[in-house]
Design a protein around this nucleic acid. Structure first.
Length: 526
RNA sequence: GUCCCCAUCGUCUAGAGGCCUAGGACAGCGGAUUCUCAUUCCGCCAACCGGGGUUCGAAUCCCCGUGGGGACGCCA
């Protein structure tokens, strides 16, 4: 075993003396007092300002696993890339999670506040922890200060590329891995700021077997890169090192993340093994893709090209978060839709998922299926709730609709209630709050646009019209008008429909009349 | 260049060697009901990427192809 560097050098390399020892951290963040089956999961986004539709998938799985096992779901902010910091991003994440029923048990609850005993949950505020671990690694010779400049590293990669060698700072290419204390001192004296690299003892020619809870055991070449642990510029950790330190001291039991992390799994396993720490259960998911409308190729959902990729867009278009939850959840576990057919009151929170049943391959975003889930969801809402939600949407996203509805709550409620009383035959012609308003636009006098129809027919109708008529007598009057003119009742009804609404397709005519009220009906037919 | 993952109807999937004549859902198409539309109901279309093995038997196991995705950063 090689020697580490002196305490003084460690402090100079890190920029300050470490605040804790690992033993102290172990005491500060003791193992959680939870039943054996409880899962501690975390969703760990970078606060870059957007809540992507694809983020829903891992967030729901993490939340579910904790929820169904009596565990803990954490929200951790991976804000170690100071260059990508975005103002207000935390607020967006926290609010979006809440809307989708995904509020964490621990972690950030606003831009400045958080809850939980294993924090801070912002990586930028955990510097002391990373440095403390790095210091011990340095002392043990398991890490070293590296003074290579980015130009020097580029040169190494270029050399490797032209020689057809795999790129990376490993073995002989890790120039500074065996620097003497004198050499380190000289660099430091010259004002160079080092990064801290792992002193890898792995052998690329040997295999390491790693477990993925969905796929099983996977054989990789051992990971022999001397990866950066602490960055030189801001002294913050890289993802790999933060993952090691955070998920150990936060006592995370289950790590669910995108497939792009699968290649670094051997590194992470080696890191935990090196520390002698218990590894979390790892499992990796494919991203939700979309078929590019232009090229026809499969690709990732893109914020700039696909409106549906942004959760905010979905929300402002009037989609119900609950429906989006169900759509995504059904991709997570397709037995949900079968169960839901049997028990309509079922929600995603009542339906346990199993890790091994998660799909190893990726799904394609299917707006048609989302529409279906949304129609079904809206159809289940009691009329009061439906009305409340529509108003809520309008108030938040559409000043125009909001103003129109104001003071007209009963009228709105009336139109929304049409053909909703029989659970077996509820209208399902809209899948967003916005659509419910747009489809019923003809009810509002300022949006009503008259169309051509046979006024003679409606004049006949008006002659015997009595607003108080029940549906049967109303219909027999229509039939009478039709018979007298030698046309079908349907034809007579259509003239009335167009006269009243300006449209050839509407909900049940009798209900429309009752909802519009006598005055409006007479006025429009005049 | 090296390494890793994935592969069943158009889409999401069920399927862990015989229950598979490959099941369901969405979409599409057709029909019935209805004052139009929507709903509801019924029906139809539609898949195991290719080739080799193993086995009495393969969508399921193995190998080789092919295709798709990902990683190889002081980004996460």
């Amino acid at each position: 075993m090689r020697n580490g560097i002196s305490k003084e050098l460690i402090e100079r390399a890190l920029g300050a003396a470490p605040k804790y020892t690992i033993a102290e951290l172990e005491k500060k963040f003791p193992p959680r007092d939870l039943p054996a089956e409880a899962m501690v999961s975390r969703w760990a986004p970078s606060p870059t300002g957007h809540f992507h539709t694809g983020n829903l998938y891992p967030a729901i799985v993490d939340k579910k696993l904790a929820q169904q096992s009596g565990g803990v779901f954490m929200l951790r902010l991976e804000d170690t890339d100071t260059a990508r910091e975005v103002e207000g991003a935390v607020e967006i994440i926290v609010n979006s999670l809440a809307l989708f029923g995904l509020s964490p048990d621990e972690g950030a609850i606003s831009e400045t506040e958080e809850k939980g005993a294993y924090g801070p949950y912002k990586q930028s505020e955990r510097k002391d922890f990373y440095h403390s671990v790095a210091a011990e690694l340095l002392a043990e010779g398991k890490a070293y200060p590296c003074f290579m400049s980015s130009a020097e590293m580029d040169a190494v990669r270029e050399k490797q590329r032209s020689a057809n060698l795999r790129p990376g700072i490993y073995g002989e290419f890790a120039r500074d891995r065996n620097l003497s204390e004198a050499e380190i001192t000289a660099h430091l004296d010259a004002g160079k700021v080092p990064s801290i690299r792992l002193y890898s003892t792995a052998n690329y020619n040997e295999k390491i077997y790693c477990k993925d809870a969905i796929r099983g055991s996977i054989a990789f070449p051992q990971y022999d890169d001397d990866i950066v642990l602490i960055k030189s510029n801001d002294k913050l950790p890289t993802y790999h090192f933060a993952h090691l330190v955070d998920d150990h001291f936060m006592r995370t039991t289950h790590v669910f993340r995108a497939n792009e992390w699968l290649p670094s799994l051997p590194l992470h396993v080696q890191l935990f093994d090196m520390m002698g720490w218990e590894k979390p259960v790892y499992f990796h998911h494919a991203t939700i893709d979309i078929l590019d409308p232009e090229t026809g190729n499969r690709r990732k959902l893109s914020k700039s090209k696909d409106r549906e990729a942004g959760v905010n867009n979905l929300l402002s278009d009037g989609w119900a978060p609950e429906a989006i939850d169900e759509y995504v959840f059904n991709i997570i576990d397709s037995s949900y839709e079968d169960e839901k057919k049997k028990k309509p009151a079922l929600t995603i929170w009542d339906h346990p998922i199993r890790i091994k049943k998660l799909s190893p391959s990726g799904a394609l975003f299917d707006i048609k299926k989302l529409e279906w889930w949304a129609r079904e969801y809206i159809a289940t809402l009691p009329i009061e709730e439906l009305t409340r939600r529509v108003v809520e949407w309008a108030d938040k996203y559409s000043p125009e609709w909001s103003a129109r509805i104001k003071g007209q709550g009963d009228y709105l409620r009336g139109m929304l209630a049409i053909e909703r009383d029989n659970p077996k035959s509820i209208r399902k012609d809209f899948y967003t709050w916005k659509q419910t308003l747009e489809q019923l636009a003809f009810f509002w006098d300022d949006l009503f646009t008259p169309a051509e129809y046979d006024k003679a027919i409606t004049a006949d109708f008006l002659a015997t019209f009595n607003f108080a008529d029940d549906k049967d007598s109303w219909w027999s009057k229509i039939q009478a008008v039709a018979t007298a003119r030698g046309i079908k009742p349907g034809e007579a009804a259509m003239a009335l429909r167009i006269g009243l609404t300006g449209r050839a397709q509407t909900p049940d005519l009798y209900s429309v009349i009752k909802t519009m009220g006598e005055a409006r009906v007479r006025k429009r037919l005049a």
